[in-house]
Nucleic acid binder design. Structure first.
Lengths: 146, 146
DNA sequence: TTTAATTGTATCGTGCACGATATAATTGTG
DNA sequence: CACAATTATATCGTGCACGATACAATTAAA
């Protein structure tokens, strides 16, 4: 038996599985708003930076246009954003928040806290987890060449 | 501005993004073997537990049959496994490793170590990350009702 | 100032994830 | 023994992810 290939000895698996499980937990709060988890991530970026180009959204979310273009079209259909070619540079599509998109931020404001409560893990553990991930994150980002 | 909805203050985003970036890093080593990352996860389970039912694989990988059935069919087409209805209980499909599947384990044996090197993060940091995730994992699992 | 390189977005194809549903085999109960 | 409940797997539909490719708008260079 190759111990280095046992699932229990891998970092990668708990990371992959935790990410999926957290996404599922979020879904419970997001589905009533018509949102998926990646859409929620994108909305968080837009609440902070809209109006901004798809490129900027992609840089923040680490997602390419082959994911973002259809995702943003769905957000537009939901009425949370609208898309508009920039006058200054017609290559760019600027994403604007609609009024519903602004209201949505209020509707989402309690989700993170509710999730922590529901999860029932000490906030301290979650904070150390975030600190560790933030520490490792830059190294991970160095290996992407978008 | 709702600070609780700023991406930088979220735990969920670095978790989601790290998981995807790690997957991408693995892909570099897996593509030459014809594997995707989820297929690699499943192969790790099979190296440890084959022959076993799809149910068992699903329990270990936290994946349902709607993901596993097609994934396992692809692994079979690749020649790494074969599927066989159990005689004792014809509801079950037993997954067996093929010879190529056994050889594959040797071919994958150095990947985890290579990845850590390539990543260039102190192994200690990765170890604490794994410890923390393992700590939080049970709480996450309580919220799934497969 | 043509032309080449770059940039921002879109499209295509494949493979997950996952909710919902279906179905056949087995088990449990009256 | 019937027959309802459970179990294991499969299928369908939608929405990510992401490699590969295409293309039009802009910029740089000869």
């Amino acid at each position: 038996m190759l111990t280095q290939l046992q699932l229990g000895n891998q970092l990668c698996f708990p990371l992959y599985a935790s990410s999926r499980l957290i996404t599922r937990l979020y879904q419970e709060y997001l589905t009533p708003l018509g949102l998926t988890y990646p859409q929620y991530i994108v909305m968080m970026i837009l609440w902070e930076h809209a109006p901004c180009s798809i490129k900027v959204v992609g840089d923040k979310a680490l997602l390419n246009t082959n994911t973002l273009t259809p995702l943003l079209k769905r957000l537009e259909q939901l009425g949370y954003i609208h898309r508009q070619r920039a006058d200054s540079d017609e290559r760019m599509v600027l994403i604007h928040l609609s009024e519903a998109g602004v209201v949505l931020q209020q509707q989402c404001s309690e989700i993170p806290a509710q999730l922590v409560t529901k999860l029932g893990v000490e906030p301290a553990a979650l904070l150390s987890l975030k600190k560790l991930l933030d520490e490792i994150f830059p190294a991970l980002c160095e290996h992407i060449d978008n």
